[in-house]
Design a protein around this nucleic acid. Structure first.
Lengths: 339, 339
DNA sequence: GTAGGAATTGGAAGCGCTTCCAAAACTGTG
DNA sequence: CACAGTTTTGGAAGCGCTTCCAATTCCTAC
């Protein structure tokens, strides 16, 4: 009785051709209202749902977008940034009726295994790839593949890449300038992983702010560490002997670690050391004192990335698109400007 | 010249039929070694990669697994638990050559939009769904759909569901028993969201431990809150007036909030209040003092869920599978047992 | 040298849908 | 009422692969 429910079956029951049934299914034009309604009723009655894979094959688009997170495991899911980014992208996909496929490339073997699958037209209509470490070849490969790709974060040496990024330079500059204006002049920096453009750019912003105030960059006050609590903790420990009077941290998570190191040294924030960081994610308001931090719009970032991808998918990769999103300094307690 | 690279084209170039080419592609049997090699060489030379969607349609399996996280946004990506779970599941998918599709159902509209797509055989070969709040209808719908489904966490009122969970009752019981053995007798609990089985089960474990020591459960010492830092903070504030001498927290994140509330009240951990929590995720070692906590194997949990799903996909949903994973109490500073 | 069985091969029928294109059915105009 | 133009319809050709099954080839044993 209940034959396998295919579009053919629907067409038969509604007394139309499969072509017409397909038109109704996809809200296509050129169907008499009366016929359309009849087909719709049959669809509703039978609970018919089209086979997504068959649709994909015939229409040559899968309605699936891939999010590729390259290997850089240290911070990947410790830093609240990535979950948040993922969430933003997932939401944007939902809103645009795309399904999100997640590729966590944890090892090189993973990359080799999945590259053939995802770089080929078919499975994915488009790819959002998060920038990883500088020199990571995956971006280059994906950018030259058949699949439309946009990059989340600024990729190095890919002039034709479309990407969205936040203005890390200006954001960091604003954060450091704030500390300068509060009268600090031994401002240290916790940079994050310098193999990433985010760290590089924030460091550039730090330098620019100092130079704008005619201060030299003292390399002994600059300390690198992963973008994690532990990374910040260790980097801060290395910095303490050089007696900074303020710290700019490249992320909230690192700032948490820095706070810990500072307290363990018997110092307090903001009294002995003022602190400004970057992100404005949950750790910023959980910390005590609450963090003065450069807010970056992570959710909107994900949304923009997806929208840019949709644009590239529709209109081709040229010209390369660029979106640099603004940041905003959020003043709380850790800088000492307010109590 | 370069015709579209299909299996037909490969077959032609290798001088075999498409059938044979397909056999080589899928490492099927019954191909003469010499022929196999010839086809493989053509594949390698041309860089041919099969069209995944066409394979899916023909073979009736997509090699895609869906991870569904139902709406419960408060904690979803603040609690480090979910990112970690996602990571474990993603890794397991990679290892088994499955692609992971992520469904974050943030609104009811999202559910309605995606339910038809995912509940229909085709897009997904199987689903791992994280339990949400009790009474959430999504699990029920998915369990009766065409798609093999396993649940991460214990679902309520679904006797036929296959699921994997950690032994929340025993874990909580062990944590509380530890506090009892240290001589505490006004042990409070921060339960987490009582609309989840995890919170209920941990609460049950708490009660069991008390009862085993002939202590009554004092409801004024039990405080509910979301599974987040803020949730723990607020729940702890409500508890402080009742002067507990120890706290069992249903999650590390909540314990962080509890610590904050305790310090703000001018008390110290473990001196004034001993603290044991649940999870053993990064917050546990970041906190000061470090948290004594009930370790749950989140990564392995994801792996088990995927493996169970693969089993259900292969051998059918009956009988329902159950895996309850062991926890282990990790003793650090917050309980006062060691310094 | 030949029968019987196993290993190898390819033809052809799908998988369930979209879409091109030509045919059929209307519309209005002179 | 015929005709050109517009809508509406359905036939049929794919999309790129898997897989059933029958045909062919290859062995081995007698």
């Amino acid at each position: 009785m209940t034959d396998k429910l295919t579009l053919d079956e629907i067409a038969k029951r509604a007394g139309v051709s499969r072509t017409t049934a397909s038109r109704v299914l996809n809200d296509g034009p050129n169907v008499r209202p009366e016929v359309r309604e009849r087909v719709q009723r049959v669809i509703a009655e039978t609970g018919y749902r089209p086979h997504p894979v068959a649709q994909s094959l015939a229409s040559q688009q899968s309605h699936v977008i891939g999010l590729v997170l390259p290997r850089r495991t240290e911070a990947l899911f410790n830093d609240p940034y990535f979950p948040r980014l993922t969430q933003g992208i997932a939401q944007a996909c939902n809103d645009h009726d795309y399904t999100l496929a997640l590729f966590l490339m944890q090892t090189e073997a993973d990359e080799e295994k999945f590259y053939p699958r995802i770089s080929r037209k078919g499975l994915l209509d488009g790819i959002v790839i998060q920038v990883g470490q500088i020199g990571d070849g995956l971006i280059a490969r994906l950018l030259t593949s058949d699949v439309p790709t946009v990059v989340a974060g600024r990729p190095l040496n890919h002039p034709n890449a479309s990407y969205v990024d936040v203005d890390n330079v200006a954001g960091a500059c604003a954060g450091v300038t704030h500390l300068l204006q509060l009268g600090h002049n031994r401002i240290g920096m916790l940079t994050g992983d310098m193999r990433t453009t985010a760290a590089l750019d924030r460091y550039t912003g730090y330098c620019e702010a100092l130079q704008a105030h005619d201060l030299p960059v003292d390399e002994t006050l600059v300390s690198e560490g992963y973008f994690t609590e532990i990374g910040g903790y260790e980097a801060m420990q290395r910095l303490l002997p050089h007696k900074p009077d303020a710290i700019f941290s490249a992320s909230d998570a690192m700032a948490l670690g820095a706070l810990r190191a500072i307290y363990e040294a018997g110092l307090t924030v903001p009294h002995d050391i003022a602190l400004v960081s970057f992100d404005d994610l949950p750790p910023a308001t959980i910390a005590r004192p609450q963090l003065t931090t450069v807010h970056q719009p992570v959710d909107a970032f994900g949304v923009k990335a997806v929208e840019m991808l949709l644009d590239v998918m529709k209109n081709g990769p040229t010209p390369p698109r660029r979106i640099i999103m603004d940041t905003k300094l959020v003043i709380r307690q850790s800088c000492g400007a307010v109590s």
